[in-house]
Structures are given as structure tokens and as C-alpha cells.
Simulated assay, not measured.
Amino acid sequence: MQKLNFPTYSFRFKNSENKVAIFDEIRKKFIILTPEEWVRQHIIQFLTQEKNYPKSYINVEKLIKINDLNKRYDIIVYQPNGEIFLLIECKAPEVKITQETFNQIARYNLTLKAKYLMVSNGLNHYFCQMDFENEKYNFLTELPEFETTNYKL
């Protein structure tokens, strides 16, 4: 798999039906390794190892309804009070991050109402803080660490 713009992490792999699978520590199972899954697994490691987000607050690939359509978000991080702190959209490295990518995460966030957004293809990462009052998002240079949310575990 392609080298991504993250620190180096160690992963567990296995062969499954002539395909490589990677172990997802959040879903606690092996997932077929696609380019997008490679990005997703790096982001999970980034969140837990670099930003100190507890694994128990991270949720991966769950169904949501948007305008009566079934969609799947990639990753969300909850706050201890159950509100959504962070919504993440993962793309494969060869997928360019475009305005349509931001439109997609913004549509998802109309339902989810996360305080922060992250969009990444593993090579380019974009972080935003929501400004619900003015209906826009403000770009950040990095995500806040979990402790900065003023919640103690």
C-alpha cells in the first residue's frame, strides 16, 4: 500500500480469500484492505496515538439517513455526553479532495451536527470547526487534542 502523510503505525494483516485484510481496532475485526480502508486505519491510529482520543468514543462506518437516503459515515468521535465531537470523511489517496467532498461532509453534518470536521485522502488533510450560527466552517491547521474539549474521562 501507498505511503501516506501520517506517522508510521504498525497494523495487523491477514490473507482472507486471496485478499489482504487489516485489523480494525474499533470494529474489532479484519476488514478487506482497500485504498480507502488504508486511509481510514491510519486516521484511527492518528486519533488514538497522536490526539489521545479514546477508542471507546470512536465509531466507524455506520448507517445514517440523509434526505431519506441511506448513507455511511466513515468515522465519528463522540464526546462523553454523547454529542458528536468530530466527523471524518476518508477518501482513497488517488481521489482528489474537491468542493464536492466538502459538500458531502457538510450534508452529513446537517444530520450529525459535529463540532469539528476532517476530510482526508491520506495525503492531504483538512480540518474545520463548525460555525453553526453563521452556517459555515472555519479551516484549522490541526485538530484539537481530546483533552482540549474540557472533558475528563
Rank of each mutant, 00 (worst) to 15 (best):
K3N: 14
K3S: 12
L4Q: 08
N5D: 14
F6C: 05
T8L: 09
T8Y: 13
Y9S: 06
F11E: 02
F11D: 05
F11G: 08
K14C: 12
K14I: 11
E17Y: 13
N18C: 06
V20F: 03
A21K: 03
A21G: 13
I22H: 08
E25N: 10
K28P: 02
K28L: 10
I32V: 10
I32C: 02
L33W: 12
L33F: 13
P35H: 07
E36P: 06
E37D: 02
E37F: 10
E37P: 06
W38V: 09
V39G: 07
V39M: 09
H42E: 11
H42W: 04
Q45H: 12
F46Y: 15
F46C: 07
T48I: 11
E50M: 02
K51P: 15
N52T: 08
K55Q: 10
S56V: 09
Y57P: 00
I58Q: 06
N59Q: 07
I64F: 00
I64Y: 00
I66E: 05
I66Y: 10
N67E: 11
D68G: 09
D68F: 06
L69A: 06
N70K: 13
K71M: 04
R72I: 00
R72E: 10
Y73P: 05
D74F: 04
I76T: 09
V77K: 03
G82S: 07
E83Y: 08
F85Y: 01
L87Y: 02
E89M: 07
A92P: 00
A92N: 05
A92G: 04
P93I: 08
P93E: 07
E94S: 15
E94N: 12
T98F: 03
Q99F: 11
T101A: 15
T101I: 07
N103G: 08
Q104E: 14
Q104L: 00
A106M: 05
R107G: 00
T111R: 14
L112S: 12
K113F: 05
K115Y: 00
K115L: 04
Y116L: 03
M118N: 03
V119W: 04
V119G: 08
S120P: 02
N121I: 01
N121S: 06
L123D: 06
N124S: 13
H125K: 14
H125C: 09
Y126F: 15
Q129E: 07
M130L: 13
M130T: 13
M130F: 01
E133S: 15
N134W: 07
K136M: 09
Y137P: 09
T141I: 13
T141G: 12
E142F: 13
L143E: 08
P144V: 14
E147V: 09
E147M: 05
T148L: 14
T149V: 09
N150E: 11
N150F: 13
Y151L: 00
K152C: 11
